Simulated assay, not measured.
Amino acid sequence: MQCCPDCGIGMEWEAEHGNPACDACGAPSHAAFNFCWDCGASFEEDNEAGDTAEGYALDFDCHSRKCQGRVAWLMPYCPWCASAQRWQPSDETDAPVCVGCEAKLEPSWAFCAACGEEAPLPEDCFTCGAPLEQADCAARCEHCRRMVCGECFGDYTLLEPSARQREAKSGSPGVRELLLCSPCAEELGVSPIREEEPPASETQEDEAPENDEEPVAARTAPPSSPWEVLGVAPGTPLAEVKRAYLALITQYHPDKVAQLGSKLQALAAEETRRLNQAWSELRQRSGPGH
């Protein structure tokens, strides 16, 4: 694992506790290591393999049968015997595969942990099994990190223990708002966020206007390019475009506008269509594999 599976940022070791560095590649090391964990260069040492090293969390068995040492998740080489290490993140038969480096990914990863490439979209919703390509929208649950279709996620409020304590002291509720799939919402026992009743002026949208003027929304020309529809600058990386799309599409989910008038629901449906069309167009422009 060389990149964060949640945001894709590259991960690096930081030298700690005055530890030495590798003469060959400059990577931070440890006085007890026999080889560089980053490039495999020998330190001409013969230290006994250990489970821990100050500044390093050695949590995984070395892949070499001859070595009894342990390695950490960022180490491409064992620091005891220099055998090449390969992170094996998933043993699921239907686990997604990175389109950049063909590494096998965990279904809960948004980015490849080996090269940082954005993880491919699963074919089916993890909760109901519906094809995601046919769904109006999809999102990643903030608890299990699995991709689900729009029918299987919603916004919920979670009152954590620390928030309960703050609430008891301040008298005001301390909650987190989370986008969760339905199984996680049931597991956590959270409460769905209820939309407030719209003011009377908004509920009268169903009534015909007293004059012949068009509604303001109808007179305003919608953005023309897919970049404008999604509110991003032309040339924005596809990963950022996707995040903008998911943030916008959830605002127009049927559950969010169910309490509004029929005209506002129609406008939400039209905006959903435009967002889906813009996202589909930019995905196709980016080429295969996205």
Rank of each mutant, 00 (worst) to 15 (best):
R140N: 04
V71H: 00
C184P: 00
C3M: 11
Q284N: 09
L179H: 07
S225P: 00
A114V: 13
R283A: 11
P222F: 10
S83W: 00
R86N: 06
S262K: 12
P107L: 09
A168D: 12
E151R: 12
K169S: 11
R273A: 15
E213P: 01
H30I: 08
P288R: 11
E205A: 15
P89F: 06
G189N: 00
A138S: 13
D6M: 15
C152R: 03
R164S: 12
C184I: 04
S225T: 15
E197F: 02
Y156M: 02
T52V: 14
A185G: 05
S83D: 04
S280Y: 05
A103R: 05
V175Y: 06
P79C: 00
R283S: 10
A239C: 05
D6G: 13
C149Y: 07
G50T: 12
S162M: 14
G154S: 08
A278V: 07
P107Q: 09
L74D: 01
E160G: 06
P173W: 09
E202H: 11
S286R: 14
A32H: 08
A95M: 07
N211L: 11
S170Q: 14
P222N: 10
A130G: 02
D255S: 10
E213N: 14
A82I: 01
R146S: 04
S170G: 15
L178F: 03
L238E: 02
P28C: 05
V148Q: 01
P237M: 02
K169V: 13
L158F: 15
D94L: 09
A163F: 03
L105V: 01
R145A: 12
V216A: 15
R219I: 09
G69A: 05
P209T: 11
E118P: 07
H30M: 10
D6H: 15
E196I: 04
S286V: 09
A21D: 08
L264D: 08
E151L: 09
R145W: 12
P89Q: 09
S280R: 14
V232G: 02
P96R: 03
A247V: 01
A49Q: 03
P120E: 06
T220Q: 15
G8L: 06
E210V: 15
F126T: 06
C149H: 03
D206T: 08
E118Y: 07
W37Y: 05
A27K: 04
P222G: 07
F60M: 10
P209A: 14
C128F: 08
P79H: 02
C25N: 04
I9F: 14
R145S: 09
M147T: 11
A49I: 00
G55I: 03
D124A: 13
E106A: 11
E123W: 10
P223S: 06
L121Q: 13
M11F: 08
P122M: 08
A233W: 00
A244W: 04
R65S: 10
E160F: 08
E117H: 10
S286Q: 13
Q134E: 14
A130Y: 08
S108M: 10
D136I: 00
H143C: 02
D255L: 06
H17D: 15
A135F: 05
P199A: 14
E16F: 12
V216S: 13
S42E: 03
Q265N: 01
